[in-house]
């Protein structure tokens, strides 16, 4: 495992009077796969949104390692893309928005990387759920991120689609050395696909440890009535 990529210090979020995220410190290392798990309303999406830069924390700071500054790929829970554009047009647009000098070539590279060749000229609205999620992920890769943040990426997928997606993500981490932080409600999925598991409940970090240490009973004990 390489050195630290991002250090979050004392980050805290509120929605009006409700504290969505209690002050917490978090370090993400290069090449690390981190699972965020916890019941609904635990603060998983809020933490990912803060790390992605979608939401500004009400308090605390994010400190990036110099070389990786800002290179984050964001995969929201629901596909964030233009349904009336084709796969290729979506990727070309987001590559352009990410500042690519040659969006056409970048889109072709992403199509190959996400194995979307046979769907390249099909409108996004016509894709199956699994393929649309792959496009959602490919768009997040358009900025060549060093940190990929995924909000419940397999929530809408069938079991075999989940398997194929995790295999692909594993290759990405292995080939590119990028870090991965994903949220899931499944401790099994967290244990199988992450190096490290964080358990959140009621906006508070209840557990931060290696994936092998967490089983269902321990998880239930941590989240208690929030589950």
């Amino acid at each position: 495992m390489a050195g630290p990529l991002l250090h979050a210090r004392g980050i805290e979020c509120r929605y009006g009077s409700v504290q969505a995220l209690a002050p917490m410190d978090l370090q993400i290392n290069a090449g690390e796969r981190i699972a965020l798990t916890g019941p609904n309303g635990a603060g998983k999406t809020t933490l990912l949104s803060v790390l992605a830069g979608v939401r500004r924390p009400d308090d605390g700071t994010l400190e990036w390692a110099h070389a990786a500054h800002g290179r984050v790929g964001w995969v929201p829970q629901r596909p964030a893309l233009y349904p009336r554009l084709t796969v290729r047009e979506n990727l070309r647009l987001f590559a352009g928005l990410e500042g690519s000098d040659d969006p056409r070539a970048a889109a072709d590279a992403l199509i190959a990387r996400a194995d979307l060749g046979q769907f390249a000229d099909r409108r996004a609205s016509a894709l199956s759920t699994g393929t649309m999620q792959r496009l959602n992920l490919a768009i997040a890769l358009a900025g060549s991120p060093s940190l990929l943040l995924l909000d419940e990426p397999t929530g809408t997928l069938s079991p075999d689609q989940r398997v194929r997606l995790w295999e692909w993500l594993a290759h990405l981490v292995q080939d590119d050395g990028m870090s991965l932080v994903f949220s899931t409600q499944s401790t099994e999925e967290a244990g199988r696909n992450a190096d490290r598991v964080l358990v959140l409940a009621g906006g508070t970090l209840r557990h931060d440890g290696p994936a092998g240490q967490l089983d269902e009973a321990a998880f239930m004990a941590m989240v208690g009535d929030d589950a």
Partner: peptide
Amino acid sequence: EDHVLSRLGRGLA
């Protein structure tokens, strides 16, 4: 409705 605002809001536009 296309859920792209959060993506665009990360500095893309």
